[in-house]
Amino acid sequence: MKNAIEVKNLVKKYDKFKLGEINLEIPSGYIIGLIGENGAGKTTFMKSILNIIKKDQGSVKIFGEEAKEDDSKRNEIGVVLDNSFFPELLTAKDINSVMKSIYSKWDETLFQKYIKDFDLPYDKTIKTLSKGMRKKLEIATALSHHPKLLILDEPTSGLDPVVRNEVLEIFLGFIKDEEHTVLLSTHITSDLEHIADKIVFIDEGKIVLDKDRDELLEEYGILKCSIEEFSKIEQDDIIRYKKNKYGYEILIHNKNKLMKKYSSFVIDKITLEELMVLMIKGEK
């Protein structure tokens, strides 16, 4: 299997924050979901892949080659960044005209189709658009030059559930081509439960989990018990735990095995959100 992105020993240091070392392989044909708290390093990671910030150490390969500063491979990448980035005085029409001269494979018809599908005005300045509409315009732009790789930082933030589903459907359609790959970060973890093939969890600048989604949701679970029962659970079986009013919520691994071992306890399926919260806020 070919890798769309290969990251080796990537380190980026700031005064009060350090990203890395990050090692990550992103195979072609996958949707990779990047999750983590605000400030965990998701954006820093994506920016260093895109060379918006300079890495201090390590290597980033895109489509098998070291990602260079000014690379015509950029024609194969579609990008959405976390903040609005189009000049506010421009219109969708202007964006079309600008991108036509920038991307060699810019598809005007496709862009206009997205504008129509997304109910976006073609002649109004971006200034007048809502946050969600701006995001939609950015997504439309990222898709309209037939990229092979999408790097999307919080592409669904600010979108209402209907549009969010629409956008996720588009990503799923995009990935049908085996050469296509999506790397997206989000704090709306439920999005990823529908579409991501792989989940990468970043915390305090490091990857703490890198797993297939199905495997992850299958293997991890939440064991619920009362305060008295907590002592019966072996320390080795507890990854994290959280105490609440009624008892304990314990994050466990090897769900099926532990279901037999602790057959008198309730072991629930886990959502990505619960996993994230327990990993970050839970005690060890």
């Binding site: 000014d70 950029r74 960044l81 980035f85 920038i102």
Partner: peptide, 21 residues
């Protein structure tokens, strides 16, 4: 000023031949 205000530069860098252009 518009570029700075709209954080255009970080996006422009990701375009083909971004920084030089």
């Amino acid at each position: 000023s518009y570029d700075e205000y709209n954080k255009w530069d970080s996006y422009a860098i990701t375009l083909p031949n971004g920084r030089n252009n």
